[in-house]
């Protein structure tokens, strides 16, 4: 097994690189605001991590069925009956901004 620190070094030497522009694109998809300096920092650390991830390519997985759940279980179905009662007041106590029972957000433009 390859472990630190040799492993870490190996990872860093062939690090995949991810550009500042790509970082900005991902950050926007994830709705994370970034300034220029942060974007550079993330470009560096994400590149390192991608280098680590690229180690996966060492194994040929052709024909291996992907595993989405640790247990081979099926979806359990519940009966169709309303079981929840109105708890709006309690739930909206923790809301940043409400009015007339509605959650308020900056105007949604279509």
């Amino acid at each position: 097994m390859i472990i630190c620190p040799t492993f870490t070094e190996a990872v860093r030497s062939n690090a995949m690189s991810i550009s500042v522009d790509e970082v900005k694109k991902i950050a926007h998809l994830a709705r994370l605001g970034l300034d220029e300096q942060e974007a550079q920092g993330y470009a560096d650390s994400l590149s390192q991590i991608l280098g680590l991830i690229e180690q996966m390519n060492a194994v040929d997985t052709t024909g291996v069925s992907p595993m989405a759940h640790p247990l081979d279980m099926h979806l359990r179905l519940r009966e169709d009956a309303p079981t929840e009662s109105d708890q709006r007041e309690k739930f909206q106590k923790v809301a940043p901004s409400t009015e007339a029972g509605l959650y308020l957000v900056p105007r949604v433009i279509e």
Partner: peptide, 15 residues
Amino acid sequence: KSLHEDFHGMSGIDL
């Protein structure tokens, strides 16, 4: 649903 009636320039969300 987003309700666009004017809530001081905000939209109201009904879930």
